[in-house]
Amino acid sequence: MTDHPARKPDQAKLLVALQDLDHMIRDAEDAKTAAKMQEMGFPMDGIAEIKKARTELTEHIKPQLLNRYQRVSQNYERIVVPVVKDLCTGCFAKVATSFRYEKNSVVTCESCGRILYFT
């Protein structure tokens, strides 16, 4: 797959993809959401497939970052959050503008510890 973020060295993007997958798994396993989806006509029987995709994705993430992701997930539902107008959208603390230019590094909010995603 040419667009698979795992082929790029950008670890922040991999963490975003991981969170997207985790949200998808959570929705699929949530009885209320799954019932709503099935009522609309959407089959939801491929949960094993996306769990497999999650495992494959984590193999491309550096262990220390994966640990950080898991650690933050113990405190927050949203682990990776976008930075909007130089604010962490998890806790709304100011994010240093210089962080945006730290290429190939994963930046966390100094206030809440969430992983930051610069859109």
Partner: peptide
């Protein structure tokens, strides 16, 4: 790429 990947994963579900 992130959007496309998410949509393809959703189709796997």
């Amino acid at each position: 790429g992130l959007i496309l990947e998410m949509l393809l994963n959703r189709e796997s579900l």
